[in-house]
Design a protein around this nucleic acid. Structure first.
Length: 282
DNA sequence: ATAAGGCCCTGACCGC
DNA sequence: TGCGGTCAGGGCCTTA
């Protein structure tokens, strides 16, 4: 599923394909994909604009257009953007097509139909609830500590809270907790500052490493899998220490990786390398 | 204010 | 082979 590293990879790889391209027309096949307006209005407003700038906030793609609007795209679980020849017939899971100049088209494909698009003059209201960017130069461990203060929920659940930290999802929450040697059930408020600092470093390192590897592709089919704009897979799944490795040997101690459900999300960890600790309330 | 559970979706997978 | 049930989960909503 696309998290911060996958969205960052999408933005980086879409830029050379889309920059300067003009939107000539469009079609919306699943109206709910357009989050904030009627599809007719969305298409009428986006037509004629060119892709100019390429950014990301959390798991949101921010595609700046020449008319001053921003096309915001959230891929959620199975969303993908692909640049195709204009003659390519959209498949049953393609919900938005934007016809571009140079005989090309941008296809939004999303088997699960959870993905959303917004066309806005000001992105801020859509992004208002997001917490700090974990890779920003001015993001500090003390901010993470402040966010965890007084929170009784398991640290794994808190890492998934986009208001606390923007961009971490199920995969990188598990990977960061393993690297920081923290049990996922630990209440947020029980973490010492030393542990929070370890977690802060682990989050930044694992996200950066995943970006360098162009993200993680884990699905069993091309519809479910995260695939880059050109259809290539990411490579970071080969470096996962715990995610989707239930029963396999821990890379640290050789004992089997275990699976828990926390906040309705599968959670993978090593009970030996990530001990619950005396402070854990469960 | 936080926390927990439901909902949206469809294809893969499992057991019979 | 066919079929029903379960699982996957990000963000938003409701409820306590």
């Amino acid at each position: 599923m696309p998290e911060l590293p996958e969205v960052e990879t999408f933005v980086r790889e879409l830029q050379p394909l889309l920059q300067g391209r003009q939107i000539l027309s469009g079609q919306v096949f699943w109206p709910r994909t357009i989050a904030d307006s009627e599809p007719e209005f969305f298409l009428q407003r986006i037509t004629g604009q060119r892709f100019e700038t390429f950014g990301r906030r959390g798991k949101y793609m921010l595609l700046g257009l020449s008319g001053g609007d921003t096309l915001i795209v959230h891929l959620r679980m199975t969303g993908k953007l692909h640049v195709q020849p204009v003659a390519t017939v959209p498949d049953k899971h393609t919900h938005v097509v934007l016809e571009l100049d140079h005989e090309q088209a941008l296809h939004f494909q999303d088997m699960r139909k959870f993905g959303r698009m917004w066309l806005v003059a000001d992105p801020q209201p859509v992004l208002a609830r997001l917490g700090p960017e974990p890779l920003a130069a001015d993001f500090l461990a003390s901010q993470l500590a402040a966010g965890l203060q007084g929170r009784a929920a398991p640290i794994k659940a808190l890492l998934l809270d986009q208001g606390l930290l923007a961009g971490v999802g199920n995969i990188y929450a598990d990977e960061a907790l393993f690297r920081a040697k923290i049990h996922p059930m630990r209440p947020g408020r029980s973490l010492t500052f030393e542990e929070i600092t370890r977690l802060y470093e682990a989050i930044r390192q694992v996200l950066q490493a995943a970006i360098s590897a162009c993200g993680s592709s884990l699905g069993t089919s091309s519809l479910q899998n995260y695939l880059r704009p050109g259809g290539a897979t990411g490579n970071f799944q080969d470096d996962h220490a715990v995610y989707s490795r239930t029963g396999q040997a821990c890379i640290g101690c050789g004992r089997p990786i275990q699976r828990l459900v926390i906040a309705q999300r599968s959670t993978h960890f090593c009970p030996h390398c990530q001990p619950a600790g005396v402070d854990a309330e469960q």
